[in-house]
Amino acid sequence: MFIELKVVVRLLSYAKKLTWKFLFLYFFVNSFLIAQTASNDFNFFSPLHRLSFGNHLYFERDYLRALNEFREYLKYENQDTARFRFAECFLRIGRYQEAADNFKGLFYNSTLQNESRLAYLEAQFQSGDLNSFRSIARQDIYTSAKYSREIERLYYITHLMDNSTLPDTNIFFSVFPDSNKSNVRNFYQRKKHPEYKNPVTAAVLSGILPGLGKIYVGEISDGLTSLIATGVLTLLAFDNFKQSHNFRGWLFTGLAAISYTGNIYGSAAAAQIYNAGIKYNFDNDVKIYFEKRNYFLPEKYF
């Protein structure tokens, strides 16, 4: 800059006329301005702009794009919030493994140690492997003192979601807020004593009287239809034997037998389908109830 100025002064002294002086001055100032605009020029891809655009996308729930912006930003800068959001984007779009890996990186030497541990556990929980979640949630390095209640609650909720043995009622209910206790107790009871129908009982009942198993399962009209169908076929068999139509007699006997055994089979199947319905409704109710409350986790971490 200084050398350039010297050159200009020199040139100015050479220029004799005032117009020339003015022109040189103009040229100098102008070239300086161009240089100024060029260096001040807006850079869409500077790390800072990447970060603010990333945050904007994050709030618009456009997570895949947001995480790309955070990734680019983090190549140049290191900021805990950005790193956390980067991981959270993975969590929100269902890439739980990547989310967990990135939250893990914030466990130590960061301002978000507690949040990242909770979010890590959330990623483990959402990934659906509840057994591994439960074992991790009980290890000290993964738990956070600040969010111990949240983690404890999530730990107990998982017991409603798979076939693990339910913990003792006192511990189970104590972690939930009072306003939710009656609902949670209801879920606990439904889980502990589901209103299942026993397929074997259904089959045995149908063995005693055709259709009785179906009536036990709740399919009353199906049960009565089987009773009538089996009854009519048996009657026809008897009738034909009585009139010594042996072929027809055996034919109807065969059909009656298939109808009888088929009904025993069908009653057991109907009981299983009934149970699948009970389980579906329970799982669905649990899911809707806790998802609505975001599993008692904070809606936004910060």
């Binding site: 199906d222 239809t225 088929g262 069908g266």
Partner: peptide, 22 residues
């Protein structure tokens, strides 16, 4: 074997006039 039993059960369910209630 099982297939025939399943079919027999299904056929009777089809005969049921009130199956819509199921």
């Amino acid at each position: 074997f099982k297939g025939s039993l399943m079919f027999s059960d299904r056929f009777i369910r089809d005969l049921n006039f009130f199956k819509a209630k199921n």
